[in-house]
């Protein structure tokens, strides 16, 4: 479980985030949505501990994260960024092994023999045949799967996703989110995901948090959150909202203005 209590973030005298207060129960997926510049990524950086919080606290297992060392935090929490992995000359196996870094001592010795874990995860993600290929020989979609594999090898309790599907086509977007959901269900993973695609967010998240100009506007189930008035107010566009014919999740149809921009 993760709890965010009244956090604020300033850069010099500019306020980027304020009055953020929520919690995510074990095994659930919280989606953070909001327009560009609303502070979504900053919030994720605060939770992942790479940026200091100005005031307020974030608790993981009832311990404020500033009490954790960098290494301890990484044993609990993994992050997958939108740009994924750079095209380097490492093999897929070597990159997956990097996921064990938080569990290795300075000699590089792991707490457990990770080879079985790595091969199991590679099989789940259909990467087994690619294990000895180099990262720079893979496609973007395959590379993002390797990035997912690397955080799975980390065996975290909490996963932070920062627009992980941005550079993927629709097939890989769905495939990626399906892998994540399967992992969530099997391991009771808690997820906080910044997603800019509202339809994807409504399909895969149990709860949605809306950020607007650095403030928390609303939090609730996708059905409560994705509604005409709120989307219009926060995103400044008037969409058509319908129910998904199969699973009932709210989905947004985009509607261009007939006369163009005035």
């Amino acid at each position: 479980m993760i709890r965010v209590e009244q956090i604020r973030k300033h850069y010099d005298d500019q306020i980027v985030l304020q009055e953020i207060d929520f919690q995510v129960e074990h095994g659930l997926c919280l989606g953070i949505i909001g327009p560009n510049g609303s502070g979504k990524s900053t919030l994720l950086h605060l939770i992942s501990g790479v940026e200091p919080i100005t005031s307020g606290d974030i608790f993981i297992r009832n311990e404020p994260i500033r009490q954790y060392t960098r290494k301890e935090l990484s044993q609990q929490l993994a992050v997958l960024q939108q740009e994924g992995l750079p095209p380097l000359g490492y093999t897929v196996r070597e990159v997956l092994e990097m996921g064990r870094f938080p569990f290795q001592n300075w000699m590089g010795k792991d707490r457990m023999d990770a080879s079985e874990l790595i091969e199991g995860i590679a099989e789940q993600l259909h990467l087994s045949t690619l294990l000895d290929r180099k990262l720079d020989e893979l496609s973007g979609g395959q590379r993002q799967r390797v990035a997912l594999g690397k955080v799975m090898v980390q065996q975290p309790e909490i996963l932070l996703l920062d627009e992980p599907t941005t550079y993927l086509d629709i097939r890989y977007q769905l495939q990626f989110m399906d892998y994540v959901r399967k992992w969530q269900r099997e391991c009771g993973l808690t997820i906080i995901a910044v997603l800019h695609d509202l339809n994807l967010a409504a399909q895969y998240c149990d709860q949605l948090l809306v950020l607007h100009e650095g403030k928390q506007v609303a939090i609730g189930t996708p059905n409560d959150i994705i509604e005409q008035e709120r989307v219009t107010q926060v995103f400044g566009t008037e969409p058509i909202i319908i129910k998904h014919p199969v699973n009932g999740a709210p989905q947004i149809l985009l509607q261009p203005q007939e006369q163009g921009i005035e």
Binding site: V50, K71, S74, Q81, F101, P102
Partner: peptide, 23 residues
Amino acid sequence: MGYSRSLNIMALGERQAAHLGMN
């Protein structure tokens, strides 16, 4: 030599290195 694994991780970028538990 003791930091050689850290140098590997560093190649992924400073932020990813931090996410993997590197100071």
